[in-house]
């Protein structure tokens, strides 16, 4: 196979961005899956949409505003969730629809081209600029570093929030931190796979590898590995087969999930 793919600067930038979000998204996503809040990622993504719309309307970097909106949305979800624990699905729904409706409203105020909008809804990894790459790199490094350093405490809380609270851990603060980290990962990932698919990068690698792993540690590293492989693999396949990159990345992750399901099943039978 020729390395034609590396002859294009935009492709190199896409591969780097893909690898970075492929690493950062599952690093925080594992704590979201652990707490069975998989839909939270979608909620945050919808709020990021409002940020993109605001950015396009105001002529400010959509990715930076998406990050800011996503963080605000994540904190809102977490605060609503901790206040009314029984109705966390309602809290999510409010933020979900508020984000989309707010975004559509903002878009209606200006004259935003649908091409530009589509690139954020469905991803446009091939148009990642050098400036975007700096933002994605900084965000990915921060998310991975914080998740690694605080893994003991984040694991204890994600595993059993009540016990963590009684043990004296700052549960509320660290839950908000995880929500903010998820928002950062989602804001950075939106450029690669688009807002509609963004949460898949946090959830699918974890969901796939956990069918084969026994420990939290192995699940963490394997899901990060799969995130990177799916991103780079998806980009390469999309390049040579002339497919839509974001969809290819996500479908590859789903394929990995199906594969690990089958393997774990044959293990059980055998």
């Amino acid at each position: 196979m020729s390395l034609e793919i590396l002859e294009f600067d935009f492709m190199i930038r896409a591969l780097i961005a893909g690898a970075l979000v492929g690493m950062a998204a599952p690093a925080v996503g594992i704590y979201i899956v652990q707490r069975r809040l998989s839909l939270m990622g979608d909620g945050i993504g919808h709020v990021a949409f409002a940020g993109v719309a605001a950015g396009l309307l105001l002529g400010i970097s959509p990715i930076l505003l998406a990050l800011a909106f996503a963080m605000a949305g994540a904190i809102t979800i977490e605060v609503l969730r901790s206040r009314q624990r029984t109705e966390s699905d309602i809290a999510l729904a409010l933020v979900f629809y508020g984000g989309i409706a707010g975004g559509v409203l903002l878009l209606g105020l200006g004259d935003v081209s649908t091409i530009n909008l589509n690139s954020y809804l469905f991803g446009s990894v091939l148009t990642v600029s050098v400036a975007d790459l700096w933002v994605v790199s900084a965000v990915a490094a921060f998310v991975v570093l914080v998740c690694f350093v605080l893994r003991k405490h984040l694991f204890a809380i994600a595993y059993d929030e009540e016990v963590a609270r009684v043990s004296g851990l700052p549960v509320r603060g660290l839950n908000i931190l995880v929500a903010v980290l998820a928002a950062l990962a989602i804001g950075a990932t939106a450029k690669v796979v688009g807002i509609l698919l963004v949460a898949s990068m946090l959830i699918l690698p974890v969901a796939a590898v956990q069918q084969l792993t026994h420990s939290f540690r192995a699940t963490t590293y394997a899901s990060i590995g799969l995130g990177i492989v799916a991103s780079i693999g998806g980009l390469v396949v999309a390049f040579y087969a002339d497919l839509f990159p974001s969809a290819t990345i996500v479908l590859l992750s789903i394929l990995a999930f199906v594969a690990t399901s089958l393997i774990s099943r044959t293990k059980l039978i055998g």
């Binding site: 899956v33 003991k152 851990l169």
Partner: peptide
């Protein structure tokens, strides 16, 4: 819980609040 964890990992997590962040 949601993600697999070993007995040792879960038991060790009981000490998380004892070590600094």
């Amino acid at each position: 819980s949601g993600v697999p964890a070993t007995v040792e990992e879960v038991v060790t997590s009981g000490r998380a609040a004892r070590v600094g962040l």
